[in-house]
């Protein structure tokens, strides 16, 4: 086999695999990406009930309620709008009223959100970049958080 044919073969082989990978990526991105919203944005949007989304904001003060051990409801707010959230499971250690949190899950109906996962702020100085800029925009960003 000459050098030229070998290169041709290599290129064809690579293209074949790249094509396969591209198809896989195209078929898989649509369903597996979750969008990120703040409560204010959600009030003006129509969200599909079967679409998994993330909501970022703060846990509203005096909204936290423990139904039983492992079953909670609370409100996520950005100080303009708030959303009622149900969650069954174990809350992160840093989950507190007045602190930042991100929840992931589905809307049960227009009013109630069922969270499947709750993420809380990681440490005292840390705030995920995505919430920070969103909250800065909506004017509810306090440096001391």
């Amino acid at each position: 086999m000459s050098l030229r044919y070998q290169r041709l073969l290599l290129i064809i082989l690579s293209l074949f695999f790249v094509l396969g990978a591209t198809l896989l990526i195209l078929f898989n991105t649509k369903e597996n990406i979750s969008y990120f919203y703040t409560p204010s944005e959600l009030s003006s949007l129509n969200i599909n009930l079967d679409k998994k989304i993330r909501i970022g904001g703060f846990v509203e003060k005096n909204s936290f309620n423990k139904v039983s051990a492992g079953d909670f409801n609370f409100k996520i707010t950005d100080d303009i709008n708030s959303i009622y959230v149900n969650y069954k499971g174990i809350l992160p250690d840093l989950f507190r009223e007045g602190q930042g949190a991100v929840i992931e899950g589905y809307f049960q109906n227009k009013e109630i959100f069922n969270a499947t996962t709750v993420f809380a702020k990681h440490d005292e100085n840390y705030m995920p970049a995505s919430i920070k800029s969103k909250l800065e925009n909506s004017g509810y960003w306090n440096k001391n958080y």
Binding site: N28, T29, E31, N32, I33, Y35
Partner: peptide, 9 residues
Amino acid sequence: DRISVGGPY
């Protein structure tokens, strides 16, 4: 838009 690509992808 803010999105996140999860494990399933």
